[in-house]
Design a protein around this nucleic acid. Structure first.
Lengths: 209, 209
DNA sequence: CCAGCAAGAATGAACGCTCATTCATTTTCT
DNA sequence: AGAAAATGAATGAGCGTTCATTCTTGCTGG
């Protein structure tokens, strides 16, 4: 029985790695050809497996799309969290902007972000997934803005914090749009305009110790 | 010959109205089902004509997509121009935000904007069209920011104006993303955060006479 | 030690369907 | 009557999905 259990654990691990292989391939294809432009055949070829086999690991193409979105959103939140656990907010945002431009691996891809957002306006399942992640991100921003002064924050009242939290999201998402649209744009130019804007909104580096 | 010319002019007018009927239907379908999800049959039905007839007025589905984009971008620029030919910039932006949320006719549709932006990352023709409109919009913003003091402006130097012009675009586009994602969101909340932000960036109402 | 075997993994041809596009035909105008 | 406008069935390509089949793996009794 121990042998059986070991085997099934091993099989489970292999299945998981297969799922990831499929998701990696799907992400590449979705970025290059769009959700609807990418065919299962193309994804299979990219993943270096047969089309039929993918149905052992995912119920449908739609399930793959949803899995991609979940993975991307999780990654996005992790990246945004990095922004305010460390110093120099504007510089960190600029750094992320450059990553969005190049579409580096492991980063929320800007084109995919647009694709997802457009799709969410008509696919309720995607809208729900995005909405959840969206709310989490905004709540995090608000918490940051409402921190008390003794913690190095401004201690903003709730309504002001909410307004600025949303606006912050808009600015970030606007930067993503720009990164997708203009991968050659020199991020440095944004820097000097971004800094006073973030200061105004209360997103500053924590005070030095 | 006058009869011939009159006839051809009349025919031309009719052809133009047919083209517009197709574009209106296509826009509706694209918004509801996406560029690739909307079929020619669906567009034809919405336009209340046969599928075949559309090919008398447009070479292909792709040509329809490009025409839609051109029309949307032209409208977008006109709407943005309204922003600074009149008083109270932040209030006007909020008003546009609400229109994006409801997807009112005649206004650049938010979902379509996302769809277009995503498509542009892989279709060079669309990228070119969008890039052109994009540059025009930014140039307009920059001109506004560089206006001399005697004209009620700040007379900002070129590099600062460029940085703020791009950032302004990011904020606007971020608002579009938000409008698409959250049609229920109360725009009023944004108002109080938006006003100091625009003031900081130099986008103010013209001084009263 | 191994021949044989069950079961999971993987294949890829086939299926049913939808799509964009075409074109022989009919209808509508002048 | 004749030209232009409009139709909608036909076409063929491509899609997501299924499934009969083959391959691989690792356990088993002898």
């Amino acid at each position: 029985m121990s042998a059986v259990r070991r085997r099934s654990a091993q099989a489970e691990a292999r299945a998981e790695s297969q799922r990831e292989r499929i998701l990696d391939a799907a992400q590449k294809c979705f970025v290059e050809q769009g959700f609807h432009g990418a065919s299962m055949a193309a994804i299979a070829e990219t993943a270096d497996m047969s089309a039929g086999l993918m149905y052992r690991y995912f119920e449908s193409k739609n399930a793959i799309m949803l899995a991609i979105i979940a993975r991307e959103l999780e990654g996005k939140r992790a990246k945004i969290e990095e922004l305010y656990t460390d110093a120099d907010f504007p510089a960190k945002v600029l750094e992320k902007f450059r990553l969005w431009q190049t579409g580096s691996a492991g980063v929320m891809n800007a084109a995919l972000f647009l694709e997802m957002s457009a799709e969410a306006t008509r696919a309720p399942e995607m809208a729900r997934a995005i909405r959840t992640s969206d709310t989490l991100t905004r709540t995090d921003f608000e918490r940051w803005l409402r921190r008390g002064r003794e913690e190095g924050g401004l201690g903003l009242p709730e309504d002001v914090a909410r307004a600025r939290g949303v606006l912050m999201q808009c600015v970030i998402e606007g930067l993503v749009v720009r990164a997708a649209r203009d991968p050659e744009f020199d991020a440095e130019i944004l820097g000097e305009a971004l800094e006073p804007l973030f200061r105004l909104m209360g997103f500053e580096s924590p005070a030095p110790p």
